[in-house]
């Protein structure tokens, strides 16, 4: 069954098309990743799906309710948490939980039970009277999640929930997300971190308001990265990129930290099935330059980041 059904959804601000006619479905209990660069229209889409922004055209059913005509019903059935961890810093942990519980109409026994649960998942038992401002980011994040799902919604929207959080807290947070999903909650999450997107059952990619790809991480990699991806560590990656670009043997060259990811052209592969040879071609090319030292070169399995960069570059190239 589908938790969310988006049909030809668009949002226009003046002359600017923020979301351009996108359609997709999210299944019940699924962790659904919504990826795109800054300004791609992620937040606008999430705001429309939460019922706080009217779509210009199109509609979506969230938990069975139309976002265009029944936004109030939508709000009762969803939880929402953003990058800002919208807690009140001048209130204590306990007061924050009470407030959000009250806003969702929880009372007495139910509120008490849910408060216990929130404290448990955020690891704040015994710190109920601490001011929220003095909590570390990781705790705030888990408390914000707890407050956002205090009313046990069937669907939760997470808008870049792990921004500015350390890796260990991020891991803990994703464990909580997985737990919620296992219990049947649909999780709709946007993120910048493409490694996080690997946790998602299915993802969609949008760029400049247009949906450019959809599928499971595995499917996407298989569909879009048919060629070999080679990782190259060397003394000067910019120079190496410059040299290789001239040779017309790569589809794309992207910089990942201190190394290069080279997506090779298909022709090279068809010329010679031996994978070592591609590495050899590159090594030979780069060895012409005496200053350049290769530290490491090997074929890697493509990441979602490769897929994403490939698609965005391809789209830009197509437009030109």
């Amino acid at each position: 069954m589908n938790s969310i059904e988006v049909k030809n959804l668009s949002k226009v601000f003046g002359n600017f098309i923020s979301v351009n006619n996108i359609s997709f479905e999210v299944k019940e209990g699924e962790v659904f990743g919504f990826l795109g660069s800054n300004g791609a229209g992620k937040s606008t889409t999430i705001k429309m799906l939460c019922g706080i922004l009217e779509p210009t055209s199109g509609d979506a059913l969230v938990g069975g309710y139309s976002i265009a005509t029944q936004p109030d019903e939508v709000k009762k059935n969803i939880g929402y948490m953003s990058q800002k961890f919208s807690l009140y810093n001048d209130l204590t942990v306990n007061e924050n939980i009470n407030f959000f519980g009250g806003v969702y109409g929880l009372e007495n026994k139910l509120l008490k039970d849910r408060k216990k649960w929130v404290l448990e998942i955020s690891g704040l038992e015994g710190r109920e009277d601490t001011l929220t401002s003095s909590l570390s980011v990781g705790f705030k994040q888990r408390l914000a999640l707890g407050c956002a799902v205090i009313h046990e919604p069937k669907i939760i929207f997470l808008d870049e929930p792990t921004g500015g959080v350390d890796p260990i807290s991020r891991r803990k947070f994703w464990d909580l997300i997985t737990d919620l999903s296992d219990k049947g909650t649909t999780v709709f999450v946007t993120t910048h971190y493409l490694d996080e997107a690997e946790f998602c059952g299915r993802i969609i990619l949008i760029d400049a308001g247009i949906l450019i790809a959809a599928g499971s991480p595995k499917e996407l990699k298989k569909e879009y990265i048919k060629n070999k991806v080679i990782q190259l560590d060397c003394s000067d990656i910019y120079k190496a990129a410059e040299i290789l670009e001239k040779e017309n043997i790569t589809d794309s060259i992207s910089i990942f930290g201190n190394s290069l990811h080279l997506t090779m052209k298909e022709q090279i592969r068809s010329l010679n099935e031996l994978e070592d040879d591609e590495i050899k071609i590159i090594t030979d090319l780069l060895s012409n330059d005496n200053d350049l030292k290769i530290y490491h070169i090997s074929e890697i399995s493509p990441s979602l980041e490769d897929v994403f960069l490939y698609l965005v570059e391809k789209k830009t190239a197509d437009e030109e």
């Binding site: 706080i52 929402y80 953003s82 919208s86 810093n89 959000f100 806003v103 969702y104 929207f157």
Partner: peptide, 14 residues
């Protein structure tokens, strides 16, 4: 400014 209003707006509070 703090963004807390967003949290209230997505809730059933009218």
């Amino acid at each position: 400014e703090l963004g807390t209003i967003e949290q209230i707006r997505v809730s059933p509070v009218t």
